[in-house]
Simulated assay, not measured.
Amino acid sequence: MNKILPVFFTLVVILTLAGCSNTSPNHREISSEKSDVSKNNSTDEHDKSLTDRAKETKIMKNLNIRVGDKTFTATFEDNDSAKALVKQLPLTVDMSELNGNEKYNNLSGNLRADKSTSPGRINEGDLMLYGNNCLVLFYKTFNTSYSYVKLGHIDNTTGLTEALGSGSVKVTFSVSE
């Protein structure tokens, strides 16, 4: 009797473990298929995300700023406020003179999605957002304590000051593809 009980319990444990284990070959194949489908969906989503980012990057690098008959190319910053501006392009606005160093226009909608910071120094060709909707194009370099969200920068500012002139000016922002 003493020998039968341990053997009996051992058999019960082995049968219990064998019964709880659901490792039939079909289950493994189904699990594997589900895993592969998950991987494929994940890969597809990742590829789509890369494609969207590539398009966004292309857009972000192809900003045209037209003043009169002169066109300047600019590069956008990679931030949500710049992306919000891209969604509104093409955009033609009358920009007013301010302080002898910038042109500005109060847009009809808010663009700001990023926190404003004080850049300390504004550079000729900086495209900034002041507040929530004030688009500012700087044509002179100077120091500042005001806070902005940087939207982009003109790649080559040669002739920018002359093109913008001393008063209000019509400026067109567009994306070339």
Rank of each mutant, 00 (worst) to 15 (best):
V175K: 05
V149C: 11
N106H: 14
I154D: 08
F8D: 02
P6A: 06
T10N: 13
F9P: 00
L111K: 04
L17M: 14
G100F: 10
D78S: 14
A82F: 01
T16S: 09
V93W: 04
T141S: 15
M128E: 07
D52R: 11
F8L: 13
D94V: 11
D114A: 12
R66M: 08
L85V: 07
V86F: 07
E77C: 09
K140E: 14
S49W: 06
Y139K: 01
T157K: 01
T158G: 11
N101W: 01
V169N: 05
A84W: 06
T57A: 13
T43Q: 14
N41G: 02
Y139E: 00
C134P: 01
L50N: 15
N156G: 01
V86G: 02
S35P: 01
E56C: 00
L85A: 08
F142Q: 06
Q88S: 12
N26I: 11
T10D: 11
F9R: 09
V67T: 10
V171C: 07
V93S: 06
D36F: 14
S35W: 07
S168N: 13
L160R: 01
E33V: 07
L135N: 03
S81Q: 06
D80Q: 14
A163C: 05
D155W: 00
T10K: 13
G152V: 04
N143S: 12
M1E: 07
S31F: 11
R66A: 12
V169M: 06
L15W: 01
S166Q: 13
T73H: 10
I154L: 14
F76S: 10
V86A: 15
A163N: 05
F76K: 08
G100M: 12
L89R: 05
V136F: 03
C134M: 13
T16D: 01
K39C: 04
G152Y: 03
T43S: 15
S49F: 08
N40P: 02
K140V: 03
L137N: 07
T57E: 10
V136D: 04
L17E: 07
N132I: 04
Y130G: 09
S81C: 07
T144E: 00
T71W: 00
K140A: 14
S35M: 10
G68D: 02
N110K: 12
G165A: 06
D114K: 11
M95S: 09
M128L: 15
N41W: 07
L160F: 01
D78K: 13
P90Y: 08
L11F: 09
T157P: 00
N40R: 15
M128P: 02
T172F: 08
G152C: 04
D126H: 11
T172E: 15
R53N: 10
N132S: 15
V7H: 09
F173C: 06
I122N: 00
N79H: 02
S176E: 12
Y146N: 07
S108M: 05
Y148K: 04
V7P: 00
S108A: 15
V169R: 12
R121K: 13
I59L: 13
M128A: 10
T71G: 01
A54K: 10
M1Y: 02
T141K: 05
V13E: 08
L164H: 02
D126V: 09
N105I: 03
N40C: 08
L85T: 10
Y130M: 12
N79G: 04
F142A: 10
D69N: 14
L135W: 03
